[in-house]
């Protein structure tokens, strides 16, 4: 099965200024696409448009050839988006946080899966600590545990390396490449320089 997210003639205007105009973009499986550009060039806005959060834009989006409006449900079922904020509730433990995310996509899942996902991001032993007591990097790791816990074909990651230590960065980078090699697809913005890979493609804004 193939996967294809297309944008045609995308334009986004913020406060009487064009962030970008006439942007054509095609993302297929087996690719890591890195959106580049200086601060304020609209990287986050672009990711939000592509993941269907922002509606204030011109142009068209297609998911596997179908207009986004019609394919939205199928698109969302295959999307994993991580934004600037990790989306982790400080009042809940990592396990409880993950359980909610699993349930949001309609799966009940089980404790073992979640424990395993937490172990993979190096949080074994922190399962039941309230997330508010974890460091920013650890909270980010809880969010990243979703990458293995809820497998999705399309990853849209906005600055996923924020607050992660050097080890974590290497692991995450490896994970991105593995995902692309497995036929998945990654859309990412980052200030971290990604290791050159045949799967990596760059798109620059601004």
């Amino acid at each position: 099965m193939s996967l294809c997210l297309q944008a045609r003639q995308l334009a986004c205007e913020r406060d009487d200024r064009w962030l970008f105009q006439g942007l054509d973009l095609e993302v297929r499986n087996g690719e890591i696409v890195r959106i580049e550009g200086p601060n304020g060039s609209g990287k986050t806005s672009l990711l939000k448009i592509l993941s269907g959060q922002l509606s204030d834009y011109q142009g068209e989006l297609f998911w596997n050839g179908a207009a986004m409006n019609e394919a939205r449900e199928h698109f969302l079922a295959n999307l994993l988006y991580l934004g600037h904020a990790p989306g982790i509730k400080s009042g809940l433990s990592p396990l409880e946080n993950l359980a909610w995310y699993q349930a949001l996509s309609g799966e009940s899942g089980n404790e073992d899966q979640r424990l395993e996902a937490l172990e993979q991001v190096g949080l074994a032993g922190f399962e039941d600590v309230p997330a508010g007591q974890l460091s920013a990097g650890q909270q980010r790791r809880v969010a990243l545990a979703r990458l293995t816990l809820t497998p999705r074909a399309l990853w849209v990651l906005d600055e996923p390396f924020t607050a992660i230590d050097r080890h974590g960065v290497v692991d995450l980078e490896r994970q991105l490449v593995a995902h692309a090699q497995a036929g998945g697809c990654v859309l990412v913005t980052t200030h971290h320089e990604l290791t050159a890979s045949p799967l990596l493609r760059r798109i620059s804004l601004g």
Binding site: N29, A77, I203
Partner: peptide, 30 residues
């Protein structure tokens, strides 16, 4: 108007053969 400086392609060309070699991540039905 700040416009896009062309989507540049670094690294390999469209990796269609790579995509075919590996088993694709299955798309889920909602």
């Amino acid at each position: 108007h700040s416009s896009l400086h062309g989507a540049s392609n670094s690294g390999s060309s469209q990796s269609s053969e790579t995509a075919q070699q590996v088993s694709a991540v299955p798309l889920r039905e909602h």
